[in-house]
Design a binder for these strands. Sequence first.
DNA 1: CAGTGGTCTAGACCACATC
DNA 2: ATGTGGTCTAGACCACTGG
Lengths: 244, 244
Amino acid sequence: MPAATTPSFAPLYLQIKQLLERSLEQREWQPGEAIPSEMDLARRYAVSQGTVRKAIDALAADNLVVRRQGKGTFVATHTEEPASLFRFLRIQPDEGAPVAPVSRLLDVRRGKPAADVARLLALKPGEGVLTLHRVLEFAATPVVLDEISLPAALFRGFTRARYDAYRGSMYGFFESEFGVRMLKAREKIRAVAADAATAQILGTAVGAPLLAVDRVTLTFGERPVEVRRGLCVTREHHYLNELW
Amino acid sequence: MPAATTPSFAPLYLQIKQLLERSLEQREWQPGEAIPSEMDLARRYAVSQGTVRKAIDALAADNLVVRRQGKGTFVATHTEEPASLFRFLRIQPDEGAPVAPVSRLLDVRRGKPAADVARLLALKPGEGVLTLHRVLEFAATPVVLDEISLPAALFRGFTRARYDAYRGSMYGFFESEFGVRMLKAREKIRAVAADAATAQILGTAVGAPLLAVDRVTLTFGERPVEVRRGLCVTREHHYLNELW
DNA sequence: CAGTGGTCTAGACCACATC
DNA sequence: ATGTGGTCTAGACCACTGG
């Protein structure tokens, strides 16, 4: 017997998935916390455990939750699990094992968005943005220069000092300090020539070829919450992509 | 009750998946054909339909097989389904809808592999390679220059005329003419400066920034069967990547 | 030990495709 | 009408985790 009402035409397990997704978005359970057991959720929604299982499987496939056998199912977080780090960090040294770079924030500015940024972030007229510049260093060598644009409304109280005090990835910082959760991203990659300012920061010649990675990052409901352009020296590093 | 013997320590459904994978590799069913129904397979392996279902789900997640409701489950193929085309083709025009480019083969050569190619293809000493050069054109504009290295042993009888006569993607050609099936790939992406020869073919200035995409393509058993370097003009095109 | 997710089964019914 | 994959259920047992 299904639940009391069937709110839409979709398989039951997808309806349950949607309900769980709403609870996740509304922080009924915090990132890193366990959600209720499958049996509890089955009782709550008046469906069988198998149906809840399929719903959770789908959430896990979307990287919204992480299953841990014998322990429970946990809300995905950027503040733990170094594994999930490399989901969004695709630049790696040509030689040697994957490593996490050091992030150095150059500046933080507030202002009006450029037209393309406003469009990509779906900002309302008049909405402001935060613009960060930061460098990623691998083994003390600057490799990536990022320009990061964020809707100011979602990141009130952002300061350089606050970021510098944080230990962990930038997305971990966004999640724990501002409650903004980066779920997926779309990147467009091009090759460009280094301009003078970039060349100086990255230690390359002016005109040297750089990888330009334009990322739009999405949160719940496919809402864009970050636009970032990364310029990357690929002399001893590369962007790794697995196709399957 | 499980099957007669349990050949290894793994869940039943993964053992079934492995058996099905072996059958797929050995072409017990041809690409594009339907495999037996879930019920038939359940009887064949003496397991329940649900277990076969999980095995097939896993194969479908690996893109080895495609489910079609009401019709059956079909062996994946590069010779149909334009959708699967864009799984390996990530270069797209900045403006407008995704389109399939025209592939123009420049030359075909036989010879000894370069050291790095031999290593990436895991060739035995003395094994020869085929080297192709080809251009991808979007709207009559050359955008990508590919150098493709293939183990000669797997592509006996390859000629330019034979490729030109084929209608469809290159991986479709490999699959239907040589029985070589490209299942997944790993790409390393860098920015480089155009050399004179490349600049001429792609219609750019010498030294212009190009995207260099180094791909190793794998078949069953993670065996590498293609090494390709693509050089791409990203003036009006980009490499698209979805992160989730 | 008790509780969690993971596997496996068996059977019922639905949705879709084909004849 | 028949056969296919897709959903849903209910219950049993396994494997892992932690007190």
